[in-house]
Each structure stands twice: as C-alpha cells, then as structure tokens.
Design a protein around this nucleic acid. Structure first.
Length: 841
DNA sequence: GCGGACTGCTTACCT
DNA sequence: ACAGGTAAGCAGTCCGCG
C-alpha cells in the first residue's frame, strides 16, 4: 500500500512532510530524503533533486592531480574543482581542490580503491555521505518541509506570543553576537513534533537444541511467533503451526488478533507486508537479532530480495522506506541513561528498562521458550512487543519527542540518534556549523599537531590531565547546611573564556598574554570560537529559556514539553566538555580540556577563599559545589555576586539541609532536607551491588535518623539504631536471612573469556553459572553470594543458607554502617581482629 | 609459611 | 569511545621474619 503511494511524489507538488532521514540509493547513485507525511502515517521518498555528488578535499592543485594520475586507478572519480575554505586553525583562507566522485565508496569506506586510501592527506572524507548531504543542503532533520521549487523548503510556523516574550527576555541578557543564533535555535526547537504512527515488532525462534541461542547468521531454526502492535492500538500475532504441539486451541483460532500459518515463508511475507505500512518500526535489539534473522531466514527459505523491505548494515538494520528504531541501542546510550532518565534503569534489558520506566516487566517463564505451548508463546511474544511499543509512548511519547529534539539540535537523521553516541551528535552539530560558515572541517591530526601538548598531570594514573577539586569534608554532623552550586560550570567556562579548538593557543601574538588560569595556554581575543559560541548558545537556551519554561508553563502538558527540551539540551551540555578531552573525538583538543578544568578549579577555590574571608564555614565542596554551615543571607548573596562579577558564572542557592553527616571520605555523605527527604551520596548502602538485606537495614536506619531535628534527638535515635543492628546481626548469625537477600549483584562488563587477569568474584560466579546452563554475557548483572570454602562465592540460585559465610556478611554489614555511624560518634568498627559489632550491642 | 604493605584490576559512584 | 576523582574489595607480589 505504501509502496504505491511512494511513486509520483515529486517536488513542486507542495506536499508537506517532516524530514526523518536521508539514505543512499545505490542503484540511482543518489541520496534519498525520507519524509513523514503530514498526518504522521506514512513515508514518502524524495530523490536528490540537485544532483549532489560525494566529494572530499585536498591541497594538491587540480593540474597536478591530473598529471600524477594516482587517482586514475579509481574509476568513481569524476573530476576536480577549485574551492576556497576558511581554515580556522590558521585563521586564513585556503584554496583547496574538491575531488568529486560518482559514489561514496570511491571516496572512503573501503581499505583500498578509494581516494582516501591512495591520497596522503584529504579532508572531510570520513563524514558519512548521507550526513554530507544533510549539511550541504542545510537540511534540518526533525523539521517540517514543503515540496516546492527545486528542493524541499523548510516550513516554520510562528511561535506563540507568550513564548516569544520569554525569548525576548533572554535575548536582552546575552552577548549581541549570539542573539541571532539563540533566537533561531529557539524558534526551531519550538516547532511542533508530529505524532508518529509506529509498530513494534518481536519474533520468537524455536531452536532444535535446548540451550542454543538462535543465530541470525545461521538461520536454521524456524520463526514460530511474530507480534506486531501499533500505536493506533491494532495488533496482530502470527504463529506457525508446529506438528509437535498438535492442533492450535479453538479460542486462539477464532481470535482475530491471532493468525496461524502452516507455511513459514507466508508468515514472514505477511510480516514484511505489514511492516511496510508503517513509517516507524520499533524493536528491542532488532538491529542484531529480529530484523537480520527475518532477513536471512527469508533468504534461506527462497524469498527473493525484492520482497524483503530491509536494508542491512554491518551492525544495523534499516527499513527500505521507513525508519527502524532499535530501543536497545537507544537506551544503552550512556547519555540517555544518565542525563535523560536520571539513571532510573541500570541494565539495558527489556525487562529492566520497562520495569523501571513503565512499571511492567517481561513475562517470566520457567524453562526455555522451546517448551512453550501456543498460548504461552503468543502471550510471551505479544507482551515483548507491547512493552517495546509502550517504551515509545509512555509519558506523552517522551522517547519519540526526545529523539526529535536530539535530531534538531544535532542536525542528524533519526538513525544517528537511535544508534550513535553523544559524541557523534556533537560532531554532527559542529560539522554542520562549519559547512554553514564555509569553514574547513579540520582533521583530528591537524588540531593535534598544533595543540597536542598537555601541561597538567592527572591525579589518577592513566588519565591525561588534571581534573576537578574535591575538598576534604569536615567529619561529623552539621546542622543548617546550605549547598550552592555553579549553573553548568564547564559549559559556562567554555562560553565565557572563548575556549575552542581554534581559539585556545590561537596564532595571534597579540593574544598570548590572555592567559588561562595558571596555565601557559592563552585564549583568542579577536575571534569568537566556533565551539564556544555553540555551547554558549545551548546553555543560554537551556538555563534562560527551557528550564524556566518547564517550571512556569501554563499546563502540565506544556511543562512536559519544555522538560523534554531542557533534558535534550542537558545531554549536549554535559558532554560538551568531555568530548574535548576524548581522543577519538574529531575536535579533540587537549589544551581546551585542561583549560576548562583549570578554570573550574580557579573559580571554585576563589569562591571558597572568599567564603572563608567572609567568615563562613565551608565544610565540603566538589567540582562545582560549596557546602556552607549556617551561612547568612548576606554571605550567600556576596558569593553569588562575586561569581557573576568576577567570572560571569551563576552561583545558585541549590538546597538547604536540616543537617548533613560527613565522614572523612570524599563523595560520601547523607543529608536531610527541611521536608525530611534524605539524600544519600556514595554510601555503600546505596550501591546497586550491595545485598538487599544490608540495603534494607541501611535505609531503615537512615529513616530513623531522618526524623532527627536537633542534637539531643540523636541520643534517642542512636538507641533505636542500636536495636535494629542487634536484631539484624542476630538474624544473620542464625541464618534466617534468605539467600536472595544476601546476593551481591555486580555487572559483568566484558564477556567471560575477556577477563585476562585474576578472576574477580563475580566472574567466578558467572563461570559456575554458565556450567549450570545459563550463559551470562557482557552487560549481564551477576547475582552471587559469599560462601565458605575455597572459591568463596556461588551463584545465588544454586546456594543454600547453610553454606553462607556469615563472618563475611558481618564484615560487609560493619563497613556499611560504619560509613555513617562513625561520624555520629557511634563506634562499631573492629579495632582489633574480630568484629566488634557484638561489643557495640 | 604467614601476614602486612603494596599494586593493579574491577566496579560503582560523584561532579 | 564524553571527562577526571574517589572508595572499596579482591587477587597477587614482595618483603621481613630465627
């Protein structure tokens, strides 16, 4: 149905659409734009109307290139063209040669037979062609377009009056040279986000041997169940009739949501047909399993390629017309996990993520999928598809909205957001800006050659340069503690001090005295750095516009909308400093990275010494925060003024604690706010790997302590705490605690065979587990208990209460409690050899 | 042969 | 493949020790 619709869609018909993506059509040797129709229900394709060609740049003049003929061995090369670019590193115009090719693979992407492989020095050859296309045509993925004239034109609607006045407000307070960019970005981000019709797909495969996982590269096993659920609420599940299961049950045969097939090919073809009706296909791990399995199985069943609507990449699977989003890849993204979802899920499994975000999990089955009957199999498969779908729709389609906002900010197609990490998104934005302004995109080596040196040394072995300051906390209980912190310290520093790859250690002699903190580096006074202006813009948009709007908006729905934008910007800002210090980042600039942290240290230490000069009691601070005991309003205001006046950085009142408890350890404390909310930082009792039993006692103890309002109430609380600890120790000793509550849960970050050094305990447990039949792999959380005996550990599911090493647990218990009881003057630690927990009782 | 000091590895956390 | 700083537990090594 949609395939037919795709034909005849041309420019000049004034149709409207929303730019999803750009793909490359190898037959036509052209880029193809994928647009979502205005109603969000289908995709139409528009082939490149301007005959754009792949290219890269070099510094050898065309005449010489033709003479030397080293490029003649590459048939795809079409010709050479003289062009000028601005080289930001030298701050000079350069004349370059554009080497134009008929197809992207003649430029780069293969080990040999490309321009990239035969030429010594080329520029912009490693930018994927479809991205080049986006940048050169100044396309804005995630925006509305009208098909008119000789190319699609972006279509922008007016933003509301209330939003406009808010925008004008912030424009008054930012540097004039940034105003235009901020205004334009705000208007673009404000554009309406469409409703995407989407379908979730999940398949089940029945393997011939019990414990073998199906392999997409050897699709010898039958696909037995396929579920498709869409955002309109329709659903279909296809089941293969299996001789060993007998006849399908009557009620399933009459269920219109279920269809049985005798023939697997027909079932797969029906699935392909269904998928083609959707602009967006959502899977969980479909890049590596569902889609490649379907494709390869279809092939092995003799289905011709032209009936398979998939386009396979090396480690990805795309739809030919629509867009495929693999939520596994998206949620695995660290930036998404941490900054967009506040670390709400720890493990990137469908079960863990859906449980954490929508409160629903996978259907638990006792044995293997192979043993399920028709009905169980159907329900299992359908439930997975339902969870996958819901992950895109919960919270007013938060995930889809987030994806679109990230597309808009990064200027990258939808697949880039779904599949690539934050450094690619930032790279995309930076390159787009270079193209827009006619600036040559520097090679990583160009920057490194000029600005490779580092002058600071890291505290941690193996790190490249010095980072932030962490103050030694003053141990003990502190009442009425105010926490102040700098708003987006590092992005602010980058913006304020003009830190960018071309402006730090710029070529101008006149700038050399504009030194950065205590470093020998200097920052340019003459030109605005590209990266510092873009990061400054994003920060101003977030801090001045979206954060206030997300708090003040008139409706709940509007607040949510601004909240998503605020978070999307946060993802970029949080990574903006880090990428400058990341070796693989295209714009990696060591002196920029160490300048950022040096300025951060300078600003923090300055504010702290000012606080001390004022007579305030600074009890702790970490990177961008200051903890003050009983400060006066006056002191708070003075410090804020100083930060703004001297460094142009906002120092905000963050929160006030009724009291805070510090030990001697850094990054380890808990605090109770006026409302009785307990903030726990870094303590063992909060760690995800700590046994549930210990965690429970920990939080019970804390909740007692949170009731404490003043110093004298501590005495009563101490008595209660002592009682809880006594009971818990008793329960441990008498082995009343179930083994499940004693399990440590530790992430296995590599596959078992990749542990080359001494085996950590969780890996020993993982090895035992795999001998028992289950096969943990990289990313799995290993559950184990500590037992008596040589190995010392055992997977939780095969351990019994009698073998538990009670002494070990008493020790864990002791360190956990000691972390916060010691500063309270409650001493339970063992000064001698044996645990003194008992003495404490 | 054993224990303490030390190092390196690994994980989880903080900013 | 965003960064560095901190804590903690475990495994292994070295050294001293009649």
């Amino acid at each position: 149905m949609m395939a037919a619709e795709n034909k005849g869609r041309t420019l000049g018909d004034h149709r409207r659409g929303f730019l999803l993506s750009v793909s490359y059509n190898g037959q036509l040797r052209k880029a193809t734009m994928k647009f979502l129709s205005e109603d969000g229900r289908s995709v139409f394709l528009v082939d490149d109307p301007v005959d754009h060609k792949p290219y890269c740049l070099c510094k050898i003049p065309p005449e010489e290139l033709e003479k030397e003929g080293e490029l003649s061995s590459i048939p795809g090369v079409l010709g050479f063209e003289r062009v000028t670019r601005f080289d930001a590193l030298t701050q000079q115009e350069v004349t370059m040669t554009k080497i134009v090719a008929a197809d992207p693979l003649s430029i780069s992407g293969k080990p040999s037979g490309t321009v990239r492989s035969v030429m010594k020095e080329v520029w912009e050859a490693d930018i994927p062609y479809v991205l080049n296309y986006v940048y050169d045509l100044n396309l804005r993925p995630g925006h509305h377009y009208v098909m008119g004239g000789d190319r699609p034109e972006i279509s922008i609607t007016d933003i509301g009056r209330a939003v406009k006045s808010k925008l004008e407000q912030i424009l008054g307070s930012v540097p004039p040279e940034d105003r235009e960019m901020i205004e334009k970005s705000a208007i673009l981000l404000e554009q309406q986000i469409p409703n995407f019709l989407r379908v979730a797909l999940d398949i089940e495969v029945r393997t011939s041997e019990r414990n073998r996982l199906p392999d997409p590269n050897e699709p010898k096993d039958k696909v037995v169940a396929i579920s498709l659920l869409d955002s309109d609420g329709s659903e279909r599940s296809f089941l293969l009739v299996m001789p060993e299961q007998g006849h399908p049950p009557k009620d399933m045969l009459s269920n219109e949501k279920v269809k049985f097939f005798d023939n697997e090919s027909e079932m797969i073809l029906a699935t392909f047909e269904a998928l083609e009706n959707y602009p967006i296909v959502v899977t969980y791990n479909g890049d590596n399993f569902d889609l490649p399995y379907l494709r390869n199985r279809a092939r092995s069943l003799g289905i011709p390629d032209d009936r398979i609507p998939l386009k396979m990449g090396r480690d990805s699977a795309d739809m030919r017309t629509g867009v495929h989003i693999d939520l596994y890849r998206f949620f695995l993204n660290r930036s998404i996990q941490i900054y967009a979802f506040n670390n709400a899920y720890k493990e990137a499994t469908l079960d863990a993520i859906s449980s954490a975000l929508i409160g629903k999990g996978k259907i638990q089955i006792s044995g293997s999928i192979n043993e399920l009957g028709y009905e169980e199999l159907w329900k299992y498969c359908r439930n997975d598809a339902a969870l996958t779908l819901e992950l895109t729709s919960f919270d007013e389609s938060l995930v889809m909205n987030l994806v679109v906002l990230l597309m808009r900010i990064s200027r990258a197609p939808m697949e880039e957001i779904a599949r690539r990490a934050v450094s690619s998104w930032i790279r995309s934005l930076f390159i787009a800006l270079h193209r827009e302004r006619g600036i040559l995109v520097p090679n990583r080596e160009d920057i490194l050659k000029l600005k490779g040196e580092l002058v600071t040394t890291a505290i941690i072995k193996g790190k490249k340069y010095k980072g932030a300051i962490v103050l030694q906390p003053k141990p003990g209980v502190h009442f009425n503690v105010t926490v102040m912190d700098f708003a987006s310290l590092y992005p602010s520093v980058i913006a304020r001090y003009n830190l960018s790859y071309e402006t730090v250690r710029c070529p101008h002699d006149e700038c050399k005295d504009n030194r950065i903190a205590e470093l020998p580096h200097w920052a340019c006074r003459k030109v605005r750095g590209i990266t510092s202006s873009v990061i400054g813009t994003l920060r101003d948009l977030r801090v001045g516009f979206y954060v206030p709007l997300s708090r003040e908006a008139s409706s709940k729905l509007a607040m949510k909308k601004y909240e998503v934008a605020q978070r999307a910007l946060k993802v970029f800002l949080n990574a903006s400093y880090g990428v400058m210090g990341a070796e693989n980042f295209q714009f990696y600039t060591p002196p920029v990275a160490e300048s950022v942290t040096a300025l951060g240290r300078l600003i923090l230490t300055d504010v702290i010494s000012e606080a001390q000069r004022l007579g305030a009691n600074v009890i702790y601070g970490d990177t961008d925060s200051v903890f003050l005991e009983r400060p006066s309003e006056e002191e708070i205001a003075t410090l804020s003024r100083r930060a703004s006046g001297k460094f142009d950085v906002k120092l905000n009142f963050e929160k006030e604690y009724r009291y805070v408890v510090f030990s001697t350890r850094k990054k380890n404390y808990f605090g109770v706010t006026e409302e009785g909310i307990v903030d726990v930082k870094g303590l063992i009792g909060k760690k995800s790997s700590t046994p549930a039993f210990v965690k429970e006692v920990f939080s019970e103890t804390l909740s007692i302590l949170s009731e404490v309002k003043d110093a004298k109430q501590f005495e009563e609380a101490k008595a209660k705490v002592a009682q809880i600890l006594r009971d818990s120790v008793e329960r441990l000793k008498s082995r009343q605690v179930p083994v499940e509550s004693l399990s440590f849960n530790v992430m296995m970050s590599k596959n078992i065979e990749d542990y080359k050094n001494a085996l950590p305990q969780h890996i020993k447990a993982a090895i035992m587990s795999s001998r028992e039949g289950s096969a943990p792999s990289a990313g799995s959380v290993i559950s184990f208990v500590k037992v008596r005996g040589k190995l010392g550990v055992k997977p939780t599911h095969i351990a019994s209460p009698e073998e538990i090493d009670v002494d070990k647990y008493l020790q864990v218990f002791e360190t956990t409690c000691d972390q916060f009881l010691e500063p309270l003057g409650i001493d339970i630690s063992s000064k001698g050899k044996s645990s003194k927990l008992v003495d404490f009782m």
